[in-house]
Design a protein around this nucleic acid. Structure first.
Lengths: 201, 201
DNA sequence: ATGGTAATATACCAATCGGTATTTTTTATT
DNA sequence: AATAAAAAATACCGATTGGTATATTACCAT
């Protein structure tokens, strides 16, 4: 019965997990320390014993939410055989993202964190930017590999496609959430599918 | 020297205009009443004499920011001759939206308000949703008219195109802002241009 | 079992939060 | 110029904010 995690590390993880949805729905400014203590049933002393401040919790929570999403994507991409299928994983995942429990409540953490932090919180912004650029790079890599495998046209603008795919997904999520209509996202994903089809040889 | 606006109406307008950028950058939760009094150099008594509460100011500010953007778009669309050109107005405007003074600081108010309010503030969410659906309808109308004018293919899925265009723009803005790269938005707008080209006969 | 340490809880802080009741000032009408 | 009404300023409210210093508890190695 050995646990690798120390008591503090376990508590830290517990705090992150139980406040993940709160930060992702209410945002950084909208989440208070008492929200955190209420949800975790811990006291301020415990929170501040494991984190420097509220921002530190928010950063850890973003990390958690982001990697949760990334993991789901990564697994499905690994299973896909063709590069077309691999790209289509994004479309499929977000095509019914309302239902998947893989997603933290409150929608895409990248979208939420980016739009709130881009003018207010340099650290959160930096972290969100890194996530976007990593995501972009992953898509570009898939496209390049697809080109090498003669699956995609040789002259595809991988950067443009990657950014457009991300934009369609994030913009689509925004629309779907504010209009309470998953089908709106589905329609946008249809265009994403088209975009992916177009780069095939 | 008669002014149509009463004193109160002028003050109200003044408050809206001088806090427009604050709400659009810091968000609803991130903007405090003291932010408002500091910026306007007015007192709480004056603010609460002209608005019910903070939410009421935020709603008026959104209205202001949104109609400011809408006006720019509307004017340019009116000047465009073909329906293709009219649709391309969106691409052109957002293609250098960082520079245009027509835009409130902090980016697109629809994107900002939607992502913050969708899980927290029903009134702001409702207003943002209305804006998205109005925008969508405007694009759909342009497409339909373009079809009637034999400029666009008769079997175009106007709803899908409209939603995808909005998603590309809003998603592109999010990416550009968080990565501090206007060129990232330009690349996404390139895809938007392609999307518009594709529906032409 | 014990002592040291790690972790959590308690109690408290000044500052700020959104909001209101009241007073003062400004404006418009006569 | 006098006056009533409208608008803005002042002064205040309890509650909550993020954060800290200190006390208490839980844990672990000896």
């Amino acid at each position: 019965m050995e646990s690798k995690l120390s008591k503090a590390e376990k508590t830290r993880q517990f705090i992150i997990e139980t406040t993940a949805d709160i930060f992702n729905t209410k945002g950084y400014a909208g989440t208070s320390m008492s929200d955190i203590t209420d949800a975790t049933r811990l006291t301020k002393g415990s929170i501040y014993g494991n984190f420097e401040n509220k921002e530190d919790v928010a950063l850890a929570v973003f990390e958690h939410n982001y990697s949760k999403v990334r993991q789901v994507i990564r697994e499905r991409i690994a299973q896909a055989t063709t590069f077309h299928q691999k790209l289509m994983v994004y479309v499929q995942v977000y095509d019914h993202f309302t239902r998947t429990a893989h997603f933290p409540r409150g929608g895409c953490p990248i979208l939420n964190t980016s739009t709130e932090a881009d003018d207010t919180n340099p650290l959160l912004k930096e972290r969100a930017a890194k996530a976007v650029l990593e995501w972009k790079q992953n898509i570009q890599d898939l496209i390049k590999e697809g080109i090498n495998a003669k699956e995609f046209k040789f002259d595809v603008d991988d950067e443009r496609i990657a950014l457009s795919l991300i934009a369609l997904i994030e913009g689509g999520i925004m629309i779907a959430k504010v209009t309470d209509s998953q089908s709106n996202l589905n329609r946008v994903m249809k265009t994403a599918e088209l975009l992916i089809k177009m780069i095939r040889v």
